[in-house]
């Protein structure tokens, strides 16, 4: 029994080390005094953090990524919510097809969806516009809100809905008083997921508007290719810190495990 526990700890520890290794690297690079990274590292400083906010181009990339992520997440949730609700509320024949369509962008290799967006936006003459990237991300990531909100709707008890109807509530009132409060945490988490994935997405942003709208991942890749700077590690550290805070807060009110599928 004891060997078992030890083996389990060892395995979990190795997975943790594997997953944490890149975090250690970016943290090290971001705090390294010199531009070049050597082992063992020399000197500790926060200069690169100051450099990020002093550099207009990096700040512009941050603003681009932030704007795209917020609007794409709103769009994604706004498409997924009525669809999920409709499929939950009514028995319709084409429900499956619509659901499959909503899930499709996620189960195709991303590069294919990205190329589809490229030819589409070129055809309608909006290639290179930030709006094109926002809509593309909104569609590309809508699978997550769709699945997540459906999960939330499933957790609403039918009896409560029936009771509200019996008391004379119409569709709108039922939605406002029973459905919406029930799925609110799922809406918030859907928004968070799309936001986090959108802000880190590369291939779709690159194909749709890579040469005109520089997002953070594009800027990082360019800086790797054409002139390395530790600022990219600073951005990565900040992004991980933001995600950690967001998901940590979701965990604090105890709903995270349920949202991720635990009963």
């Amino acid at each position: 029994m004891r060997g078992e526990v030890l083996l389990k700890r060892l395995f979990m520890g190795l997975v943790a080390a594997f997953l944490a290794a890149p975090l250690v690297v970016v943290a090290g690079v971001s705090l390294n005094e010199k531009r070049r990274l050597l082992f063992p590292p020399e000197g500790l400083s926060l200069n690169w953090y100051a450099a990020l906010f002093a550099d207009e181009k990096w700040v512009a990339a941050l603003r681009n990524s932030g704007t795209i992520a917020v609007l794409a997440a709103l769009l994604s949730v706004s498409i997924a919510l009525p669809l999920a609700w409709f499929l939950w509320r009514y028995r319709v024949r084409y429900a499956r097809a619509l659901f499959a369509l909503g899930v499709a962008p996620f189960i195709l290799p991303p590069v294919i969806t990205a190329l589809g967006f490229l030819v589409f936006w070129t055809s309608v003459g909006l290639y290179g516009a930030m709006g094109a990237t926002i809509v593309s991300h909104g569609i590309f990531f809508m699978t997550l809100p769709l699945v997540n909100i459906s999960l939330g709707l499933e957790s609403i008890e039918r009896e409560t809905v029936e009771a509200a109807r019996t008391l004379g509530a119409d569709e709108r009132a039922v939605f406002r008083t029973v459905v919406l409060p029930g799925i609110l945490p799922y809406l918030v988490s859907s928004f968070a997921f799309v936001f986090v994935l959108s802000i880190n997405e590369y291939i779709v942003s690159y194909m749709v508007s890579g040469f005109t709208v520089e997002t953070i991942p594009i800027k990082i890749f360019n800086s790797l290719r054409y002139g390395y700077t530790p600022i990219m590690a600073v951005v990565a550290v900040l992004f991980v810190a933001v995600s950690f805070t967001v998901f940590g807060l979701m965990a604090r009110n105890g709903r995270l495990l349920r949202i991720l599928g635990r009963h």
Partner: peptide
């Protein structure tokens, strides 16, 4: 704790 950690790792961009 593990899932918060995993979700944070998920937010690492492929470039990073």
């Amino acid at each position: 704790a593990w899932l918060v950690f995993i979700l944070s790792v998920l937010s690492l961009s492929e470039v990073i």
